[in-house]
Design a protein around this nucleic acid. Structure first.
Lengths: 216, 216
DNA sequence: CCAAGCGCGTTGGTATACCAAACCAGCGGA
DNA sequence: TCCGCTGGTTTGGTATACCAACGCGCTTGG
């Protein structure tokens, strides 16, 4: 390295680069990740590359296909179904907790995130929209006040970010987010859960249609 | 090495050993994990030890306290609350799926696991009982037919195994498991969910009492 | 006696080197 | 022509070595 880097910086840099490549589609499902090759490309040793790859496996972006074959994960129909089942379980639960626990300040923060998503949607920049919507979801998770939930959602969120990027029905998504926000703000956990469930299921149908051209 | 070991065997061996030490209490919450020290103890290099430690972090057994301080995790009241909230979300959902999806063969396999838990409970060996009950829970997860759910449950299961070991109310636990099995076998998802919810909540109260001596 | 400064030991991060198993292409025999 | 063998190449796993930052205790000056 030409400049001194803080502790663990190399791994983080490689991790962020690879994750970005995967999400942006520069690395496509099925593409191999070869430790030496990546180490050379980034000008680092294999060790931080190894650790970055392990982290990506944890996030659901990468899979060990065979003992010596590490690839960008392919999302099958089954994977998508499992993903949305998990979202049903976790996001619905999180929405309920959020409705019960959110105070005035937390709700204001969440509304702020919703506004940003609205502005981004008006702006039309897909990148920014996807980002803002991801933040809104993260905001709800934060409101649920459960750190373990956030940790456990990581493999779900990783896979989801892939799909969100292909989703183009931004206006519908924004509308659903508005309703979800209103439900949480009402403090009615049951209403929040119902709204979250509807949101996840609608998103599931949309995703299946876009990915596989079916009516799922 | 005196004998040739298959691919990745060293890491797995270290991982299993450390996990076992933590679960069995030979390594206690707050104890430090020092890479070099462990590498020497196991007669291996630091690399597989590093990876084993990362895996344990993922499973919830270990935490990076400060940049150079890796310790066995301490479970606080908050951690336990978050853990059982997650169990509410995930195990209840899994029980519902299991009830919907389980066929004759799968149910027979689950019943077999229940029988083993019953035998173990009669036997009185705490180790064996905890093991059998863990397997029963895993069996329900398997029946849910969602691989991602299994993956996501790992950090939850890890923490839970710690607590299960301290639980001494084996007979009550077995009774709840019997009821849960019956609910799943009935094919009624709602009933299975209700039973799972009751089970998790009862277990929560019991755990809090045992850990912190409160009625929480 | 106490506080600030300094130096060495500790420790995780990174780099480099070696190993063995799996893969693959090329060759030879049936 | 096709199948199986074989040797080199690829590739992840493991070992060893070096580095820098942090911490702790000792020393020294007030």
């Amino acid at each position: 390295m030409t400049t001194v880097e803080p502790l663990g910086a190399v791994r983080e840099r490689v991790l962020a680069a690879l994750r970005g490549d995967i999400i942006a589609g520069r690395l496509r499902p099925g593409d191999r990740l070869v430790e030496r090759e990546l180490a050379d490309r980034f000008g680092v040793s294999r060790v931080p590359v190894r650790e970055a790859i392990r982290a990506l496996v944890g996030e659901g972006f990468v899979a060990f296909e065979t003992p010596r074959r590490t690839v960008v994960r392919r999302l099958t129909r089954t994977d998508v179904r499992e993903l949305f089942e998990l979202r049903e379980a976790l996001e619905v639960y999180a929405a309920g907790l959020a409705a019960e626990r959110a105070g005035r300040d937390e709700l204001a923060a969440l509304e702020e995130l919703l506004d940003r998503a609205a502005k981004a949607t008006a702006g039309g920049d897909g990148e920014a929209i996807a980002d803002a919507n991801t933040r809104f979801h993260d905001g709800i998770l934060a409101l649920a006040g459960n750190g373990l939930l956030v940790e456990v959602m990581q493999p779900v969120d990783g896979r989801l970010r892939w799909l969100t990027r292909r989703n183009e029905e931004w206006r519908q998504l924004l509308g659903e987010h508005r309703e979800l926000y209103a439900a949480i703000a009402s403090g009615d956990a049951g209403r929040a859960r119902a709204q979250a469930l509807a949101h996840v299921r609608a998103n599931y149908r949309l995703t299946v249609r876009q990915l596989f051209g079916e009516t799922g």
